[in-house]
Design a protein around this nucleic acid. Sequence first.
DNA 1: CCTCCACCGGAACGTGAGGAGT
DNA 2: ACTCCTCACGTTCCGGTGGAGG
Length: 455
Amino acid sequence: MLRAKRTHGVKAPMMRHRSGPRDRGLKGGSRTSENIFEQYLSDKSVFLDREILSPAYLPERLLHREDQIQQIASILAPALKGHKPSNLLFLGKTGTGKTVAARFVGQQLTDFRVGGDSDRLEFIYINCQMIDTHYGILYELSKRFFTSEEVGTGIAPPPTGWSMDRVYQTLISRMRDSGKVVIVVLDEIDKFVGKSGDDALYTLIKMNEAEIARPNEGASAARVSLIGISNNLKFAEMLDPRVKSRLSDEKLVFAPYEAQELYDILMQRAKLAFVPAAMPDSVIRLCAAIEAHERGDARRAIDLLRVAGEVADRDREKQVTDAHIQRARARIELDCVVEAIKTLPTQSKLVLLDVILNAEVGNERLTTGEVYNTYKDLCRKVGMSALTQRRIGDLISELDMLGILNAQVRSYGRGGRTKEISASVPLLDSKRTLLADELLQPLRDYRPKKQSTLD
DNA sequence: CCTCCACCGGAACGTGAGGAGT
DNA sequence: ACTCCTCACGTTCCGGTGGAGG
């Protein structure tokens, strides 16, 4: 069966490092005029293998998660004998190793071949941030149980078009016929429940018990066990009791990494990723200390290490220094903001620009009504029809959740109850990013009126 | 203590795109 | 051509609501 390597959660990298052989094929060409890329190839990089620092990389040993791995293994072991393991729930903040632990165990399970028994097991990883609908998940599962030829012939579910019930029944019946134990990892399961409700989750859990009218008796049920992963520590409490009791048969909590643990993890990666001596011990310590202080998030720590390496490369230095780490931090932060703003829908961009332009003329804190007034003006200038205030309120809340705006509900007594809104991103960089959008070009020189100040 | 402002935010519903099967 | 489904994005309606001022 097709086992595509998925690289979920990998934000489109800004650059792909796939230079190599083809470039070298040009060597017979002009010798005297230098190609502008020459220097980048001939230059020594601090990296040996950058992939080691990518989120998709799975290390051979998972440091400081040995206990959890053991526990998971003992719970999932029955699957190798054809029994359905208990459902599992992994809880812990981002970058605490939940996903990597699940993938690690999955890898080990699939690699464990005793007498060809591995064919009796199907390990499926789904990131609910990307696939968060009930149909989407069933479809994703079905891709493992049907060949691509069967799609379109009425045998296998298409990406959309069938009734939920039909997909469900078709999938279960195929799962059962395959005789496999199916382990499904639902990463960021809270996204799925948030979007589709816990009813949808309940039907997934109930796949084992689903009865299908079948003439020949003795047919066993589908054996599906779920591994839910959530950043939200209170996730289980949010669930319907019947779902909660079944999903959290076993609950594993992943604590944030301590500085020493982060250091070990970074060290493990750095040894493989960097040229010897390019990444000094002290820099790794600093990196671990910074991240342990902030959130104990291993993914961010690894990211920081990688970006610091890139900064050093750009400076043509042979060794990464503390200064590179600091610059990498600043860059990561700005990159996040710029990226977030770029991908905003036009209406949200308009709202953000609204707040920024106001801030520039001294209206640093605005009410929803004031934002809406300017917004209507901006719409007129760019020739778009304005949304209702209700909708704009929602957009403001969304921007607040993204950390781009700061919006707090406040009451001014007789002055009414409204949100107090301010920008929480660097004004200049953000404005530049926004004005790069063609639609917003006409607002280049727009200046809002001074609003009656709050307080 | 009561009023009343300027919204907040939940709920229900509408629309139109997109994709499938019959 | 028609049915059936999801999904994103909006609108309309309307019952709250915190707290300064009367």
